[in-house]
Simulated assay, not measured.
Amino acid sequence: MIVAVLVLAYLLGSLSFAVLVSRVMGLPDPRSHGSGNPGATNMLRTGRKSAAVMTLLGDMAKGWVAVWLAAYAVTRFGLPHELVYGAALAVFLGHLYPVFFGFKGGKGVATAVGVLFALSPMLGLVCVLTWATVFAVTRISSLAALVASLVAPVFAYFMMDNAAVAALAVLTVLIFWRHRANIVRLLAGQEGGFKKKSS
């Protein structure tokens, strides 16, 4: 049962909504244009905000559903509580390395948000507010995501158990790894951002 839950979480994570939405809407494959990342931010570069929104919601939803299902299995079948955190990491790894799309996935920010809200709505809210604050000041999505992921295990230390802190620390390391090119550009002052709309 434990293996089944983890495999299901990974398979849910492997559903790349950026690719699926692009195919349904007749848009270019997000892996072949812009940043090459199959995520909501790159979907904005198609000029279709609706596609970006659907991608964002889909990637968040799969993270939430995977953790919710694991929590249900823990309660229903008396499985170890740590399985919830295992499912959180499994769905995240599925997004990063999707079996359905040649193991070439996104950077995991939206899926991580879904995971956080499923683990703790308060923790999810704190991290989203952190992201929004950094983005409002810098207009750089990658920097906002890195800061928000960094504070997640810190806030979890005060809100949740040690297993949650450890799982979120691993998630943070994975997010930083997937953003390594962005980090290089940030350090060089070359990372692009979103311009503020003129009033």
Rank of each mutant, 00 (worst) to 15 (best):
2 I>A: 14
3 V>K: 10
5 V>P: 00
7 V>Q: 03
9 A>S: 15
9 A>F: 12
12 L>C: 13
13 G>T: 07
13 G>F: 09
15 L>Q: 13
17 F>A: 09
18 A>F: 08
19 V>S: 10
20 L>V: 15
25 M>I: 00
26 G>S: 06
32 S>L: 11
33 H>V: 05
33 H>R: 10
36 G>R: 08
40 A>Y: 04
48 R>W: 00
54 M>H: 01
56 L>F: 14
56 L>P: 07
58 G>C: 02
59 D>G: 06
61 A>I: 05
63 G>I: 13
64 W>K: 13
69 L>W: 01
69 L>T: 01
71 A>I: 02
72 Y>H: 15
73 A>F: 13
73 A>D: 09
73 A>H: 13
79 L>E: 06
81 H>F: 10
82 E>Q: 11
82 E>P: 00
83 L>G: 00
85 Y>D: 06
86 G>I: 11
88 A>T: 01
91 V>G: 08
91 V>H: 01
93 L>D: 04
95 H>M: 02
96 L>S: 08
97 Y>G: 08
98 P>R: 12
98 P>F: 05
99 V>M: 10
100 F>W: 13
102 G>E: 08
104 K>W: 03
105 G>K: 09
105 G>D: 07
108 G>K: 10
109 V>K: 05
112 A>S: 15
113 V>R: 05
114 G>C: 06
115 V>C: 07
116 L>V: 03
116 L>N: 00
118 A>N: 05
120 S>V: 11
121 P>H: 01
123 L>Q: 02
126 V>T: 13
126 V>K: 07
127 C>M: 15
127 C>K: 07
131 W>T: 13
131 W>V: 12
132 A>H: 09
132 A>G: 07
138 T>M: 08
139 R>W: 04
142 S>R: 10
143 L>G: 02
143 L>R: 09
143 L>C: 02
144 A>F: 08
148 A>C: 13
148 A>R: 12
148 A>Q: 11
151 V>Q: 01
154 V>W: 00
155 F>P: 09
155 F>S: 12
158 F>N: 10
160 M>H: 14
160 M>R: 15
163 A>C: 00
163 A>G: 01
164 A>T: 09
165 V>F: 06
173 V>T: 14
176 F>V: 08
179 H>C: 09
179 H>A: 10
181 A>C: 00
182 N>K: 12
182 N>Y: 01
183 I>R: 11
183 I>G: 12
186 L>N: 15
186 L>V: 02
188 A>V: 03
189 G>A: 09
191 E>P: 06
191 E>Q: 12
191 E>S: 07
192 G>K: 15
192 G>H: 08
193 G>S: 07
196 K>T: 03
199 S>F: 06
